[in-house]
Amino acid sequence: MTVLTVPMAETGAASITRRTRVLRRLRRNPLAVVSFVVLALAAAIALLSPWIAPYSVDQTDFARTFAPPGTPGHLLGTDDLGRDVLSRIMLGARASLQVGLLAVATSLVIGVPLGLAAGYFRAWDAVISRFTDLLLAFPFLIMAVGLAAIRGASLGNAAVAIGIAQIPGVIRVVRSDTLRLKSLDFVAAAVVDGASDLWVLARHILPNATSVILVQATVAIPAAILGEAVLSFLGLGIQPPSPSLGTMLATAQQFAARAPWAAVLPGVVIMGLALAFNVFGDALRDALDPKGDRR
C-alpha cells in the first residue's frame, strides 16, 4: 500500500504546483492574455447574440439590398436580401464556435478511449492503428461529403464529419502520451501493487494526459472552424437561411461584382477566431512544456 500511496501523494502535490506554474506562465505571456480576451469576448458575443444582435437574422429589406458598411442603421451594411450583415456575422460566429466545440467533443469522446487503449494494451495497438490509417485515408471533405450525401447537410452533420476526421490526431497524441506515462515509475508501482488496468488508466494515466489532450483540443477547434467554413461555402454544411460565415462568403462570391466588400468581413472573423485559438493553443503548449523555455 505504501508503494501506491507515496507516489500518488507526490504526483498530487506536483500537479498543484504545476497548475499554478502553468497559469503564471500564461499570465506573463502577452499573446496568451490577448488571445484569451479575444476568445472570451467572442464566446460572450456568441452566447448573447440572439439577444444583442441589432436585427433578426432573417429580417429582409428589399428596399435596401447591398447597403455598404457604414450605412446608418446597418453598421456593416446589408446583403443581397437586405439582411443586416452585423447580425448575421454575430450569429455566424456563434455557429462557427458551436461546430468547433461539437466537432472537438466528438473527436475526444471517440479518440481518447481509443488512444488510451492503443497505448496501454499492446494487442489493441495494431487494430487501432489500422483504424486510424483508414480514417486518415478518407480526408475530412470526403467524409463530410459522404455524410452529407447520406444524412443531408446540416450544422450537426458537418460537426460530426469534422470530428470524425479529427479522431486520428487525438488517438495519436493520447497514445504516445500513454506510452510515455506507462513507462513511468508511479504507474509501474501501481501495476505491481495489483491495481487493475482500468484503475491505472482512469486514476494515473488519464489525469496526467489531460494537458496534451487540452492542447490537442485547442488546436483542433480552429481547424474545425475552418472546416465548417469550407463545408458551408460549398453548400455541404449549414444550410441557408441559417447564418454561417462560410455561406456568407459563398453569397459574396456570387455577387462579387455588385458588393466586393461583402467578401472581406466574414473571412476576417473566421480568421480572427481561428487565430485566437491557435495563438492560445501555442501559448498553452509552451506553458505546459516542462522544459519551459521553448516558445
Binding site: L226, L249, A256, M271, N278
Partner: peptide, 9 residues
C-alpha cells in the same frame, strides 16, 4: 488560421 478559399476569393 486563414481560410484559404477566402484568400482565393
Amino acid at each position: 488560421s486563414v481560410p484559404h478559399f477566402w484568400l482565393g476569393l
